[in-house]
């Protein structure tokens, strides 16, 4: 009878058959959209600095506004369209972090405000906080031992 493919051979065969994502095109899109989002952030920063605000306040208000934009655009059903075009260009900026909070919360609103909205808003943001904060604590302890 004809040969039977092993799992390994089949995976190789499938990889050959499956079209790849258009990496260069996607990278350019991510670069442009991600860059533009950062320009918005820079615009807010420059504006606040011109009004004489300090470094920390400026940074805080900038991220606050960027998160507000990200959340609003998600609510208005726009952010997913941006994401479909831009990929990482709209995932990586902090607006994407806001999107990752609002989108599951909206989706699971049908399961109520506590276990739906309240719990599901952290399905993606939760891990980000866990790993971000834990890394900073470890870094802080090492820093303490070094100084």
């Amino acid at each position: 009878m004809q040969k039977t493919l092993t799992k390994k051979e089949y995976q190789k065969y499938v990889d050959e058959k499956s079209p790849n994502s258009k990496l260069l095109r996607n990278m350019i899109r991510a670069f442009i959209v991600g860059g533009l989002i950062c320009i918005v952030g820079q615009f807010i920063t420059n504006l606040l600095k011109m009004r004489g605000l300090g470094q920390d306040e400026t940074a805080g208000i900038t991220s606050l506004l960027m998160i507000l934009f990200g959340a609003l655009l998600t609510g208005l059903n726009v952010y997913d369209d941006i994401g479909r075009f831009a990929g990482a260009g709209s995932i990586v900026p902090i607006t994407g972090f806001a999107n990752s909070i609002v989108s599951p919360a909206m989706e699971f609103k049908s399961e109520g405000y506590i276990m739906g909205v309240g719990a599901k808003m952290f399905v993606i943001a939760g891990p980000v906080l866990v790993y971000g904060i834990s890394t900073s604590v470890i870094a802080g302890i090492i820093h303490f031992m070094l100084i």
Binding site: S21, N26, T74, G75, N77, Y79, D80, D81, I82, G83, R84, A86, G87, S90, I91, G96, N99, S100, V102, S103, P104, M106, E107, F108, I124
Partner: peptide, 8 residues
Amino acid sequence: FPLELGTQ
């Protein structure tokens, strides 16, 4: 994923 999550 949730519908409004910006993924490709």
